[in-house]
């Protein structure tokens, strides 16, 4: 399998672990395509990718944070806060591009607060972002009074609802973001710093890596990606709800973990995370096509995560 893969130009860079995730995805696709004739049709594949795109956008940021040895539990509420503020700007007549930048700035600021408390305040990432989970949700609820904001301009909606040559725009946007994240992680100093800080913070410090700034940038990227995900979603929904983004953090962590990210830090892959997102999306889609009850979908998700971890451990030999 690996031999065939490495002959392709792009895939030659794919690591062994990512190939394993890909095999997992192909197995799942094979099973579903045998059981349901509509699974492997173009419209349904478009469906799966579109449904996975929001989780993928969040999971890209989550992967970078996890590689740096942290965790970001506040992504859902950050998304809700930037969505409601961005939507309010659009409804108030602010030009769409500026409102979008405003929403992303909100996400970046939330990420900066998380990162600063962790890197400079010396607090634990889990606790800081758990606090953020409540704090940012509360701000979104207080700001909106609990009611959704309707009336998103249709020029903005047409971006999220569009398709270029049959591929839904959210999928294209997330693919571009993933490419950027992949370049950052594998080709830039920041990527090396993230790996170093997550792998061994003390050694990284001694080697002259700017540990605090590296950590803070990871959370800021995660915040930015959370707000981009929320923009995609409110574009699709035509409304921004303060309750949006509920439990997004868990899906994103699951996708990163299936894709081979280690919650101990220092290890993770953008390609793997994307495959992890598609695995979760395909699973949900396929089980719905087969009319399997939601409770069993949850069961299947749990089993996939644990099996992925067991394979991980067996293959890494630790």
């Amino acid at each position: 399998m690996n031999n065939i893969l490495t002959k392709l130009p792009f895939v030659s860079n794919v690591r062994f672990r990512d190939a394993g995730t890909l095999v997992g995805l192909l197995l799942i696709a094979l099973v579903f395509s045998i059981l349901s004739p509509s699974f492997l049709t173009m419209p349904n594949i478009g469906n799966i990718l579109q449904q996975s795109s929001i989780n993928a956008c969040i999971a890209l940021g989550m992967t970078l944070v996890i590689i740096s040895g942290g965790i970001d539990l506040s992504v859902g509420p950050v998304a809700a806060l930037s969505a409601t503020l961005g939507a309010a700007m659009m409804v108030a007549g602010v030009p769409v591009p500026i409102a979008m930048l405003g929403a992303i700035a909100v996400g970046v600021s939330c990420g900066f607060v998380n990162g600063a408390l962790i890197a400079w305040g010396g607090l634990q990432p889990f606790i800081v972002t758990l606090g953020g989970l409540s704090l940012y949700r509360a701000l979104a609820l207080i700001y909106t009074g609990g009611t959704p904001i309707f009336g998103i301009p249709s020029e903005f909606r047409s971006i999220a609802n569009g398709a270029v040559m049959g591929v839904p725009t959210p999928v294209i946007i997330v693919a571009i973001l993933a490419l950027i994240a992949w370049v950052v992680l594998t080709k830039t100093p920041l990527g090396e710093y993230l790996m170093a800080v997550g792998g061994n913070p003390e050694a990284a410090r001694v080697a002259g890596v700017p540990v605090s700034l590296t950590k803070i940038s990871a959370y800021m990227i995660s915040g930015a990606l959370a707000s981009i995900a929320s923009l995609i979603l409110i574009g699709r929904l035509g409304a921004a709800e303060p309750t949006l983004g509920n439990l997004w953090e868990l899906d994103a962590i699951a996708a990163s973990a299936i894709g081979g990210a280690s919650l101990m830090g220092g290890r993770g892959s953008i390609v793997g995370t994307l495959l992890g997102c598609v695995i979760l999306g395909a699973l949900r889609n396929g089980l719905t096509l087969l009319n399997v009850q939601a409770f069993y979908q949850l069961l299947a998700t749990g089993i996939i995560i644990i099996v992925a971890m067991l394979i991980d451990r067996a293959t890494s030999g630790k």
């Binding site: 509509s38 049709t41 419209p43 349904n44 469906n47 579109q50 449904q51 929001i54 989780n55 979603l233 709800e241 309750t243 949006l244 509920n246 439990l247 997004w248 999306g281 949900r284 889609n285 719905t288 096509l289 009319n291 009850q293 939601a294 409770f295 979908q297 949850l298």
Partner: peptide, 21 residues
């Protein structure tokens, strides 16, 4: 079909879209 929990907004949307297809 139903979502996994009452908070699962995107999951419910996925289910609805899959049914439509």
């Amino acid at each position: 079909q139903a979502a996994q929990s009452e908070g699962d907004q995107l999951g419910q949307l996925s289910i609805a879209e899959t049914l439509i297809s």
